[in-house]
Design a protein around this nucleic acid. Structure first.
Lengths: 212, 212
DNA sequence: AACGCGCAAGGAAAATAGTCCTCTTCCGGT
DNA sequence: ACCGGAAGAGGACTATTTTCCTTGCGCGTT
């Protein structure tokens, strides 16, 4: 079953929340009855499942400005094989803003509300995020304005492109060389290899996509 | 209106046809009544629109093996402003296969049925497509297995990455230098600049995204 | 030509979703 | 503490969709 009852209703809940509505407010804004998405409208007392109609769905997509494609990207169940071929909205932020703020948690995963959603094809890593390159430090590989998509969970091997964050907040796009117990070796693009003490490094994430 | 009545019904017709069903056969295979998608079920005599239910839609997606995402990608109306913000299914093909086949029309746009759909974020160019790099000729910029997304309509300027096709079918990933009346100057990655007679070139498309 | 079969249309009945209404809870403002 | 408003639940009714049924058409086979 590609389109599952529970996923669909979760996606509607997410849609409302992400646009600052309660489910009753969303229904009202869409011209529906406020109770249209009530719990009692999602299943009968006898256990039979109830589905919203496509007409209702079309109306709430319109008032939230979400396309059907994005919505069904949202509705992809998490952490299952059925997510294959699905789309995601990837949190994305400018390189400078990412340096000035602290938009990562202790594990190096993106958190907070300053990220902009970028629709993107399936990535195995649900923690992936995007950063817009600022300046020419990463020339000639990345140019000002390029977007790189980083995957915190992806394994890094020699030669991979990586996005490294220092504990001071600096975000460095580079080629990964190796990491040992106490040292991280990287080669910033267009520069000589560097060795960093890992105590000064917040994380190194593999770059999986880049705009050109 | 993102999700339009006519587009939806057209997408259902396409879904049936593309899987070798008539609409009544598709309904029957999905466990529905054969008349479920009849013309009389798409609108009332008084002009009121009728929509299929999500439950029916889920059933026909299951029997055809089409994900909601693919379905609503297909259902997106083409060539209209309403495509803005949409996610797209980008035709994608391996570099070798692209060389062996002739999957582009005379204008350099992807055609034919050997392309695999890759979900991808909005691109202004509705003719964009993907190619999977084969071999190490494009090292160090692109590695074997990388996917590059090319945009036939994007303007090319010096330094842009480009995907060039010769009339013999060779697909070359390179940096674009300039194009004059009769000559195309490119720099294959990790090699010296080359000048080609434009009579031997089918097209040069800008690469807008690349997996890393 | 006659027949069988699948397809499609459409009307009437049955099933399902939406609306209207009431009730209760929660939360912020005064 | 009180009040007003919104949220959410659920029951009864209305509206819409699906199913069941019949009819007619087109096509291939006999």
């Amino acid at each position: 079953m590609y389109l599952r009852h529970a996923d669909l209703w979760r996606a509607i809940d997410d849609l409302a929340r992400d646009h600052g509505y309660t489910i009753s407010a969303l229904a009202r804004r869409a011209g529906l009855d406020p109770s249209a998405f009530n719990k009692s409208k999602r299943g009968s007392p006898d256990g039979r499942l109830r589905w919203p109609s496509l007409e209702s769905l079309a109306k709430i997509l319109d008032v939230t400005g979400v396309t059907p494609l994005e919505f069904f990207g949202f509705s992809a169940p998490t952490g299952t094989d059925s997510a294959r071929g699905q789309l995601r909205l990837l949190p994305t932020m400018g390189q400078r803003e990412a340096s000035e703020r602290e938009p990562f948690d202790a594990d190096g995963f993106p958190v907070g509300k300053h990220w902009d959603p970028l629709p993107f094809p399936e990535l195995a890593d649900r923690q992936a995020y995007g950063v817009t390159i600022a300046g020419d430090a990463a020339e000639p590989v990345y140019r000002d304005g390029d977007i790189v998509i980083a995957s915190p969970r992806a394994a890094l091997k020699r030669g991979d492109r990586a996005l490294v964050r220092t504990i001071s907040g600096r975000m460095i796009a580079c080629a990964f060389i190796r990491r040992t117990a106490g040292k991280l070796e990287i080669r910033p693009f267009g520069a000589a290899p560097e060795t960093h003490d890992t105590r000064g490094i917040a994380f190194a994430h593999r770059i999986v996509w880049a705009s050109q």
